[in-house]
Amino acid sequence: MRSTSNTIWAVFGLALILLLPAFAGGQWVKIFTSTTTFAMAAAGAGFLYTRLGMVSLVQVGLMGVGGWVTLRLNHAFNFPFEINLMVAGAVTMFLGNLIALPALRMRGLYLALITLMFAAGLDIVFTAKQFPNGADGFWGVGTTFAAEMRRPIFAQSDAAYLRYTMLWLVIGFVLIELHRRMAPGRAWALIRKSEAAALASGVNVTLYKTWAFGLSGLLAGLGGGLLAGSLGLLDAATFRASESVMLFALVIVGGARFWYGAVISAVLFRVVPGLLNNWGVDADLSLVIFGAALLHAVMSAPDGLAGQINGAVRALFSGRKSPENKGAKA
């Protein structure tokens, strides 16, 4: 049963990677690329929330850091895109670890609030300093238009770049899945059940909590770097603290227990506003629709939209046979 559904997902994912960039127009290729990068950040926040019950309200802020580092390196040195991206991921992973240090001593709301304070601080710095666009100096912000952003050699066009980003998202999902199946996953499961028990059975709670935050930061940083590669330059408006809160809210709505919940969250975050805009809905009224839908989803869907999809899919495949004890995939 599990392998069937895995195969189906793999085929579906592969088809999406091959077909979506080929058939989407210029605007939608851009929208789907953004969506994919935000899905990476959402996957990080979602896994942190379901595996450890920890809330990160700084994911979008960390994406900004990842994007900043990628742009900075791109304009300062002649490294290939991947190197810049990896360094960006390493920096945000380190930042994630740093944020985790106070997190070790805090729970629930307080932990969420300290990450929110980080996000708000980053917001202010981004607004004041903006993102490097090829000018001189450490901050590298000039007044003429941006210097070229080098993309990977085999992903120069927008469509190829969308495929490339989707591959990174798959790598991100695989990374999470590997963690889940190996030692860290077992340690996290134990910590989630009881920290006292984890400590008693010799699990290094500090290490694994820090590790989890680092992984989540890494995913956000890669997402931010990929977004920078897509747009060529970034703006502080993308990385407001309220956007970080909004992404987490959508992680809940999308359904954090399932890996495709992250995709749904990102679709809600980027595709839905794009659709509303395309349909000519007033920007202010889309906010109202968005806010109301968010409230409604939090009120009515315990496992998010992914939970509802999962229920429907399982009912379909198992002929409505004992849908509750199969265990969620993720």
Binding site: A249, L287, A292, V298
Partner: peptide, 30 residues
């Protein structure tokens, strides 16, 4: 609204109230 999400944990309740904030902001900006 709040009573219908009473079963959620405090963080989710806090985050959800952002939905109310942007809905109000949307109406006022409109």
């Amino acid at each position: 609204i709040a009573p219908q999400m009473a079963w959620r944990e405090p963080v989710v309740k806090a985050v959800a109230s952002l939905g109310y904030a942007i809905a109000i902001l949307g109406v006022v900006s409109f």
